[in-house]
């Protein structure tokens, strides 16, 4: 079906508004001075050097962001895989409890989860440690790989499993030869979703880090009272580029419309 003229204009305008703030921030990174002006004044690329190389504050923050997002995404997948598999195998009360627990942090305003985690880690002595941050984000975003892996498991043809069982394959063999290969793209997508979101996470990290270390988003918020600077705009560019690359990869190697719940019968 072709789009009407109105549809085309509406989509184009939405796209413009969607990318306007991002575009303005990206352009501001070129400012020669310390203030965020648009259009940028005496353009320079020096801010990129500051962000990635010369300023240890930003370098450390970026390092923490990368470590925390990669580890917490891996953890999310580790939580999500057995949960998704149990739910798919047999829907018991226990597997529903698991799914319910993983959905909890997603169903409430994030600030409340952050406050609670802050209390819990303060009580157990983990507050301000990197591993507490990793565990927190791992729990927060476990629901994402749970969803993608479940979609992957549902796409497995029962006939394949029946055939394997008839030929005498154990559950372990069928898992290794049928289930695992067919769900790997969905697992990777789930990992990427969790990774990008924990890379950008702010409010939960804010309560569990307790100012002991900072990630890029925390560092930006901490510097807020002095106003935004072009170096922070470089961070914004970095983050949006990472997201674009990651989601393009997901789209390239997986079926993004399907992951987002599109109807399969239409092309």
């Amino acid at each position: 079906m072709r789009l009407s003229k109105f549809g085309f204009i509406f989509m184009a305008l939405s796209g413009v508004v969607l990318f306007l703030p991002i575009l303005v921030v990206s352009a501001s990174a070129l400012n020669g001075g310390r203030s965020m002006l648009f259009p940028p004044q005496d353009p320079t690329l020096a801010r990129f050097g500051e962000f990635f190389i010369s300023e240890p504050i930003w370098r450390n923050a970026l390092k923490n962001s990368v470590i925390i997002s990669l580890s917490s995404a891996a953890l999310s997948v580790l939580f999500a895989w057995p949960a998704a598999y149990f739910i798919w195998k047999r829907s018991t009360a226990l597997s529903r409890v698991i799914a319910g627990l993983m959905a909890m942090p997603f169903a409430v305003p994030p600030i409340v989860f952050g406050v609670g985690l802050g209390f819990m880690w303060a009580f157990s002595g983990g507050l301000g440690t990197i591993w507490a941050g990793i565990l927190s984000l791992g729990a927060l975003f476990a629901a994402l790989p749970l969803v993608t892996i479940s979609i992957g498991l549902q796409s497995i043809d029962d006939a394949h499993l029946d055939a394997a069982a008839t030929m005498g394959a154990t559950e372990a063999t069928a898992f290794r030869t049928i289930v695992l290969p067919q769900t790997i793209p969905y697992t990777i997508s789930g990992f990427f979703f969790a990774m990008v979101l924990s890379f950008n996470e702010f409010i939960v990290m804010f309560f569990v880090s307790s100012s002991a270390y900072s990630t890029v988003t925390l560092q930006i918020f901490n510097s807020l009272r002095n106003g935004f600077t072009p170096t922070m705009a470089v961070a914004a560019i970095t983050f949006i580029v990472v997201s674009l690359v990651v989601f393009s990869l997901v789209a390239r190697f997986g079926d993004l419309p399907r992951l987002m719940g599109a109807d399969q019968s239409r092309r």
């Binding site: 990318f19 303005v24 921030v25 950008n200 409010i203 988003t217 918020f221 922070m232 674009l244 789209a251």
Partner: peptide, 26 residues
Amino acid sequence: QTVWLVLLLSSLSLSEVFIVMGWDIL
């Protein structure tokens, strides 16, 4: 649809601090 979804997901995952930064300039 796929192209739009990539753009939408990138915008969706962008941290609130960056979005506020953008509108702050705008």
